[in-house]
Design a protein around this nucleic acid. Structure first.
Length: 310
RNA sequence: GGGGAUGUCGUCCAACGGUAAGACUCUGGUCUCCAAAACCAGGUAUCCAGGUUCGAAUCCUGGCGUCCCCG
């Protein structure tokens, strides 16, 4: 009974440059054409992308344009300032609101993006400890090495110490931070999802092809003003080069080019090869999820959608 | 044609004649608030043929390849 009541959502995941955004709009329009059949008022898209979330990150983040949206409403684009820190828990809050709004209107939410951590946080409602990052504490912890941090954690929270990467400083600091600020070990219960989800995965299996796609896409974006965008982010919006570099890929290497640290050719090469690596890491994340239907066929995707909504 | 230098993982680069190391790439993986991040694991090499030696990437001879200088 309760299974029947679970709201249905569609999640489109996959690597960069696999065509997710476009297919998401296709699905939304397909639903729009069959409102009566699916007993719904339509579909709206929630982006799950840790870079497209930022205002003024357009070309570099490969954000969908108004025109490409084809009239379908998109949520969680341009909702954060790149000058402020943004993290998964904020994404979780924002996306939860969006999803509730969409469901209230009797529409189908379509989550689309390449940031697996964000998507899982939304769908599985990952319980993040209610401890905000404490920069002062982190500064102190930063001075210790991984061994010391691991020792502290082992003492205070042996359970967490068991499954943490003992050499991953960033994670160790976070774990110790949680413990110090709450005085409690963290409990890691993974909840069942309250949604009924159709998982669709797009991928480019051939790495040569993937590289080709990424480089073609890059040429197009250079023509569209990628370099100018990054320059503007620095000059007009006051983002430091270091900050821009911290966003990775396009922003990182374009910033380095503008700083005269690398040539334009090197910039292109780095963006392409690092994007390929990123795509692989994305797949490592998604591969764990056995519910994902992997297909690149639009026809098959619409068929699956059709079955799922009936 | 003459002289010199040099050949080690896919790439860069180490190794007093004594276990062929490291970085990057590659492959796989981890993930409870930086996730385009951070981190872990694994694979692959001594140009060829002889010689010296208990033992050769290392020394010797020849071949082949590459680079530089002179002509």
């Amino acid at each position: 009974m309760s299974i029947e009541q679970k709201p249905k959502i569609i999640a489109i995941v996959g690597q960069t440059a696999s065509g997710k955004s476009d297919i998401a709009v296709d699905i939304a329009l397909f639903i729009k054409k069959n409102l009566k059949k699916f007993n719904t008022n339509g579909a709206e898209i929630i982006s799950a992308d840790s870079r497209q979330i930022y205002k003024n990150f357009d070309i570099g983040a490969n954000k969908i344009t108004k025109k490409e949206m084809r009239g379908v409403k998109h949520w969680l684009l341009d909702v954060a300032s790149p000058r402020k820190r943004f993290s998964v828990s904020q994404y979780q809050k924002f996306s939860k609101k969006a999803i509730e709004h969409i469901i209230k209107e009797k529409k189908i939410p379509i989550i689309c993006g390449g940031t697996g951590f964000y998507i899982d946080a939304l769908i599985y409602e990952t319980q993040f400890p209610k401890v905000k990052p404490n920069l002062k504490l982190r500064e102190q912890l930063e001075k210790m090495d991984t061994e010391e941090l691991f020792k502290i954690l082992k003492n205070k929270d042996p359970k967490r110490a068991k499954n943490i990467d003992s050499k991953n400083k960033r994670r160790l600091i976070r774990a110790v931070e949680i413990n110090i600020l709450t005085g409690k070990p963290i409990d890691n219960l993974k909840k069942e999802s309250k949604f009924k989800t159709l998982w669709l995965g797009l991928s480019v299996k051939n790495s040569v092809l993937l590289k080709e796609r990424i480089s073609k896409r890059l040429e197009k974006r250079l023509k569209n003003g990628l370099v100018e965008e990054v320059k503007k982010l620095h000059q007009k919006y006051g983002l430091s080069w270091a900050k821009l570099e911290s966003f990775g890929l396009e922003y990182k290497f374009t910033a380095q080019f503008l700083e005269n640290k690398i040539t334009k050719e090197e910039m292109k090469e780095s963006i392409i090869s690092e994007s390929v690596k990123y795509a692989k890491r994305q797949m490592t994340w998604f591969k764990r999820n056995s519910s994902i239907n992997w297909t690149n066929s639009k026809k098959e995707i619409l068929n699956l959608t059709n079955k799922f909504l009936n």
